[in-house]
Simulated scan of single mutants.
Amino acid sequence: MRKQGHRSRAVVAVLTAALVGVAGCDAVGGDSAGPTQKAKPSPKPSPAWDSSPGSVAAVGDSITRGFDACGILTDCPDVSWATGSSAQVDSLAVRLLGKAKAAGHSWNYAVSGSRMADLSTQMAQAATRAPELVTVMAGANDACRDSTAAMTSVAGFRADFEDALSVLRGKAPKAQVYVASVPNLKRLWSQGRTNPMGKQVWKLGVCPSMLADADAVDAAATERRDTVQKRVQEYNAVLKEVCAQDAHCRYDGGAVYAYRFGTDQLSHWDWFHPSVDGQARLAEIAYRKVRSVT
C-alpha cells in the first residue's frame, strides 16, 4: 500500500474497518475510491494432537520387528517398542491402550530389511485398519548398504517418505503419525566394536557401509563412516521437514538419534540392533513424545 501526505476521513475509516476484519484497502493510492480487496481470512488452527489414540499401527524395518532381540538373526515382534506385548518392554501400544486393548487394537506391518521405498506398501496395509496412530521408524537400511555409493540419495529418501505419507492420507486422512528419527549408526558401531562376537556377526553383512572392517580407524575407514553419519543426519532433516508439512504428523525431534545406546541396550547376538532393554528405551521415548501436549 502506498502512503499519501494527507489521508481523507474515508480512508481512515476504511483502515479502521480492516482492523476489525471488515476488510478494505486503497488499491490505487491517493484519495480516489479505487477497488477494494477482501482481507484474507485467518488460517484455521492446526488440529490438536490427540495424546490418547485408541489404536496403533507400526511400519518400518527390523528395529520395529524386534530383530535379534530374542535370538540370532530372527524377528521377535513380541518385544517391539511399538506394538510388542512383552512386559519387559512395555511397548508404546501397551502404554497407551493397556495390555488387553492393545492385543486387538495394535498391528505391526514393519518388515526387516525394509528401506524407505518400501514404506508405501506398509502404509497401505496399515491404513486398512483405520488406525488412530501410525508409528514410523525407517531409514537405517537406506544408509546401511554395501557401500556409501549405494546409499539412498537424500532426494530419493524425501520422495519415498512423501509418497508413503500420501498413501496413508489417501486412505486414512486423519490418522496421526509419530516419526522416530534414524538412530546414530556411528554410535552403535563405537559401542558394538568392543565385543569380539558382535564383530564376527557383523561380517555376515550387518550394515557394511558402517560396520565393515570394524577395527579399522585409518583415514579411508573414518571417511566412510563419517559419510554414512552425514547421510543419516540428512535423512533426519528430511523426516523433520516433511513431517512438519502434515498437520497430523509429529517428529521425535531427533530423540532416537540422540539416545546414547550402551551395550545393555544392544542385542547380544549382533551388537547392533536394540536389545530387549533397548526396545524398552525406544518405547519410553515414543510414549513421552506421543503423550506430550506440545
Rank of each mutant, 00 (worst) to 15 (best):
P41F: 04
A164H: 12
R95M: 06
L96R: 08
D78T: 15
V217E: 07
S166C: 12
A102V: 13
L188Y: 00
L165A: 14
W271V: 04
E223N: 09
T194C: 07
P43D: 08
K40Q: 11
P131R: 01
G98S: 01
L282N: 05
S52P: 04
H268W: 00
T64L: 06
R291C: 03
T222C: 03
M151P: 05
M116R: 09
S275W: 00
A103W: 06
A220T: 15
S46N: 08
S209T: 12
W189C: 01
D252P: 01
D226C: 05
Q176R: 13
A220P: 00
P47W: 09
E162S: 13
S46H: 01
V201Y: 01
A175V: 15
Q279T: 15
L204F: 03
L97G: 05
N141G: 06
V290T: 13
C70L: 09
A58D: 14
V20W: 05
A214E: 03
R145V: 11
A159Q: 14
R129Q: 14
L282M: 09
L15Y: 13
A172Q: 09
W49Y: 02
G98T: 13
G71V: 08
A100I: 13
A17D: 10
D90P: 05
V134N: 06
V177I: 15
S80A: 10
K289R: 06
A48I: 10
K174W: 10
